[in-house]
């Protein structure tokens, strides 16, 4: 096994399991749907709330996607092979999360214009929303990857993983929606974007290390 062949097999796996990606997308759409149905379908509510709605839906669907990311690897013995491959476990984790991010985020960005429109989000500001997603979602994936690694060997790990990880998503959601809100009211939002990028970068560096530690402990 080397990094390239690992990356290739991860890619093939995700591409073949299209349904998982589609499910994450459907989940995203459904959470968004709940807001007009459950709260208020008027433009007066939806337009200012749209950034927050999109980001809550994104955070939840990413959690769903990340939650079971190592489950199969754990069950079929692949994790044991990662550990004994002599390759760097943090780097393997990094590659895996990166591929996951790509596969989930691209379709999500594709349906975003439509959904934003349905939420009366001003189309001129769509680029801001896309920027927050591109800069903020890596943090959500990388932080989630730690929770997933911690709970991979537990029987009812899913809820536990949500409990562990969701509080850590708060800053990302706050700054992302803050940026969108600032853009909507014509204020500068580059500061928030910079903070999002900084959080994602930190997560990108630290999380593979912590996830690797957790995987090793889970295999105990």
């Amino acid at each position: 096994m080397n990094y390239r062949s690992f990356l290739k097999s991860e890619w093939l796996t995700l591409v073949r399991r299209k349904q998982d990606t589609i499910n994450a997308l459907l989940f995203f759409v459904m959470v968004i749907l709940l807001f007009p149905l459950g709260v208020d379908p008027s433009k007066a509510f939806l337009e200012p709330a749209s950034g927050g709605i999109v980001w809550c839906a994104v955070a939840l669907s990413i959690l769903m996607a990340v939650e079971s990311m190592y489950k199969e690897d754990f069950n079929d013995g692949s994790l044991e092979q990662w550990l004994t491959s002599g390759l760097s476990l943090p780097y393997l984790v990094f590659l895996k999360v990166f591929v996951q991010w790509l596969v989930v985020i691209v379709p999500l960005l594709l349906v975003l214009p439509l959904l934003a429109n349905m939420l009366f989000f001003p189309i001129e500001q769509l680029m801001v929303m896309i920027s927050t997603l591109l800069l903020g979602t890596p943090a959500l994936f990388f932080i989630g990857a730690i929770g997933s690694a911690l709970t991979v060997s537990l029987r009812r790990g899913a809820v536990l993983m949500l409990l562990l990880i969701l509080p850590l998503y708060i800053p990302v959601i706050i700054f992302a929606t803050g940026a969108i809100r600032a853009a909507q009211s014509g204020m500068s939002y580059s500061g928030q974007l910079a903070i999002l990028a900084a959080i994602s970068l930190t997560a990108l560096v630290l999380s593979p290390l912590m996830a690797a530690l957790s995987i090793k402990a889970s295999m105990n």
Partner: peptide, 15 residues
């Protein structure tokens, strides 16, 4: 949630 002590120790440390 974790019964194995070695694993539980590592997990709480990470969290």
């Amino acid at each position: 949630a974790i019964e194995d002590r070695v694993f539980a120790d590592k997990a709480v440390a990470v969290v």
